[in-house]
Simulated scan of single mutants.
Amino acid sequence: MGRAASSVDNALVELSWSIMQRELLDTRDWGTPQQLSAAIFEWIEAWYNPRRLHTSTGYLAPADYERLHTTSATAA
């Protein structure tokens, strides 16, 4: 995005990390690295990615967009 070492280079990653930290990491103590790793994977793949809104889909979550698109395609 910007030149090397610019503060905007990491803006998206920092935003995603802060959301995950607030909604998952800070909610409990994690017994093992494996528990934490599994929880992070579950949070990203089962909660965050399917539900986050995208500008490219008209601000629909991926699951909603696919459901709408699949319904339209089968109706035609």
Rank of each mutant, 00 (worst) to 15 (best):
A39L: 04
I40P: 00
L53R: 03
A76N: 11
T27H: 05
R52Y: 04
R51C: 00
S6P: 01
Y59E: 03
F41P: 06
S72C: 12
L53C: 06
A5R: 15
R22P: 02
A76M: 12
S16W: 11
V8G: 09
E66S: 00
W30T: 05
A73W: 07
P50A: 00
G31M: 11
T70F: 10
R52C: 01
T70V: 14
W17M: 06
Y59S: 05
A61L: 03
S6A: 12
S6K: 08
A63P: 04
E42N: 05
H54M: 01
A11G: 14
Y65A: 11
L15D: 12
L68Y: 10
A38C: 08
A61E: 04
H54P: 06
D9K: 13
Y48T: 00
R28Q: 12
S56Y: 10
W17V: 06
L15V: 12
L60I: 02
P62S: 02
D29S: 15
S18Q: 13
H54E: 05
A11F: 03
L36H: 04
E66Y: 00
V8Y: 09
Y59D: 05
S18T: 10
R28K: 14
Q34E: 15
A39N: 07
Q21S: 14
G58E: 02
R67H: 08
G2W: 06
A73D: 12
P33V: 09
I19H: 00
S72H: 14
